[in-house]
Design a binder for these strands. Structure first.
Lengths: 233, 233
DNA sequence: TAGTGGTCTAGACCACCGG
DNA sequence: CGGTGGTCTAGACCACTAT
């Protein structure tokens, strides 16, 4: 007898994926139990489990104990983006990185910042504006607010040398991170700093981080015109 | 003897995560072999493996056979977004969904479309412009190009009833998908269609899909001012 | 409460790749 | 070549939840 080649979890995944794509199972349909699939494909149940884990991660199926495995009724495109530290992003594109501190001062956090941090009471924070440059040209304008309570060290940092972005990433681990993408129109000051025209459409990445319930920092990374964020699935 | 509680892979993950955050292992450092960690934490190697899989998925460590496990030298924020079908997105926000076909015609694909599809020779495609409405107000303007070669059915669809978005999602599975986020300034026509002012900053989600090497469709989803895409990690 | 997925274990073999 | 991670198996028990 030719010993049938061993089945890998990717084979199982592809098999099921195919079955869904060709319509054998439609949105909302229930798939057989793992154990039955294992018997049918002649592999261990844990192999099926591994395949199902992958299909769940990619958003194709939903699984519930006792409820079984179902094809997700609402198809979604699930995309993953890596957002690196700005310096590395520029260097990886082959640019020469430059950094310039514009402004740093203690202030009352405005309402928008408080809302992003999900706190309701007034609060003093450090505001930091800085420019990241690629080959001498503006690349990203960073408008950041840092909580004194969570990050007392911020008072003693020399932000003219090292960006808060970099220091925080390596020194302030977070337990939660909110990300927000949107577009804004450049106001006069932003346009001047980014070396573009007022009214230009700018892509913004806004990020807020917490350690448990305590806000660490919230930052708007305002990109220059033409910036694209991309990924492949 | 008190029987030590069983260790779960999440315990292992958190243990290692903690060790990295507190600086016990810095960027680029090599972690012990799975087998050693298993002994030290008194669990099976496969439990460590499961934990490592999670840490790899979240971008915290890199693993290579023989090379071992290392803390990623370049920290990244890895974010996952679910992009639903537009109709469902509107309905989930509590809006009443509306759809309106603006224009549909066979054309030579312009250079930008060919580039997005990664094809070099001229090509006839179907261009479709449509508006998605929430509670009667413009929500997303869809500018789509569909390949006749990969999707011959597009000629016979009644696009006044059903959006190409929805039909393609349920009928044309893809093997590859490119996603691109950026900002544009509304031109006069776009502004009128979206019921806003020329020059407004608009957030754009561009998506191109292929079946193997054959392009299926490329689409710009142009959102109305104020649109935010968000996720939590 | 019973059915289903989630996880742990111990052991085995394989695949990759650094030295 | 040898060390390390990747995977498969068979079996067991647990945790959730639909009915």
């Amino acid at each position: 007898m030719t010993p049938t080649n061993r089945i890998s979890w990717k084979d199982v995944r592809d098999e099921i994926h195919e079955a869904i794509l060709t319509g054998r199972y439609g949105p909302g349909d229930r798939l057989p139990r793992d154990a039955d699939i294992a018997v049918q494909l002649n592999c261990a149940r844990s192999t099926v489990q591994r395949a199902m884990q992958d299909l769940t991660d990619s958003g194709l199926v939903e699984r519930r104990r006792k409820g079984g495995t179902r094809v997700r009724p609402d198809p979604v495109t699930r995309a993953t983006f890596d957002i690196p530290v700005t310096r590395r992003e520029i260097e990886q594109k082959g640019g020469r990185y430059g950094y310039q501190l514009i402004h740093s001062a203690e202030k009352d956090a405005p309402r928008g910042v408080l809302a992003a941090c999900e706190i309701s009471s007034p609060c003093r924070m450090q505001q930091i504006e800085a420019l990241h440059l690629s080959d001498g040209q503006p690349y990203i304008l960073e408008d950041r607010w840092v909580s004194f309570e969570t990050v007392p060290e911020i008072r003693d940092l020399d932000l003219t040398r090292q960006s808060a972005n970099e220091w925080l990433v390596t020194n302030k681990p977070y337990s939660r991170c909110d990300l927000r993408f949107y577009a804004i129109s450049a106001d006069d000051r932003t346009a001047e700093l980014l070396n573009t025209v007022p009214g230009a459409a700018l892509f913004v990445i806004e990020r807020t981080t917490w350690l448990d319930a305590a806000p660490i920092t919230t930052v708007k990374a305002i990109t220059t015109p033409g910036y694209h964020l991309l990924t492949t699935i």
